[in-house]
Amino acid sequence: MLDMLKSVFSNLSRKPVTRMYPYEERKPFDINRGHLENNIDECIFCGMCQRVCPSNCIKVDRKTSVWEYNPFECVLCGVCVEKCPKKCLKLDVHYRSCTDKKYNIHLEKHDDSEKAGA
């Protein structure tokens, strides 16, 4: 019955092991796979990322220079980042914030704009 006593006492004198999220956040690890970003200026629309992606969430159109990505289907494996010949893809350590609407990330070469749309 008294087996837990030791941890009871140590827990009394220790600060909580849990955090008051979202007021207190843990710093992400350096190699955390948070979200995918594409530096579209560097991209050559080769379509490599589309071919290797296990969840088929990237669509590359070479003719119109469009790179389209569905962040809700992406499993953040990072294969596209490794295979990209121009190294323009990058996994950022921070997660995307939650949302009540699904959207695709649509990047085009000529105007560099990031539009959110279905």
């Binding site: 837990m4 092991v17 690890f29 190699i31 955390n32 796979r33 499993v75 494996c77 990072g78 996994l91």
Partner: peptide, 29 residues
């Protein structure tokens, strides 16, 4: 319940190791 919380507290350290070495907590790929 107490034992449940204690074990999961310890487990969190292992999850941190997985995250720090692979980039993800659970599906480490």
């Amino acid at each position: 319940e107490n034992l449940f919380m204690q074990t999961w507290k310890i487990r969190e350290k292992i999850m941190d190791i997985l995250e720090a070495t692979s980039g993800n907590r659970v599906i480490i790929s």
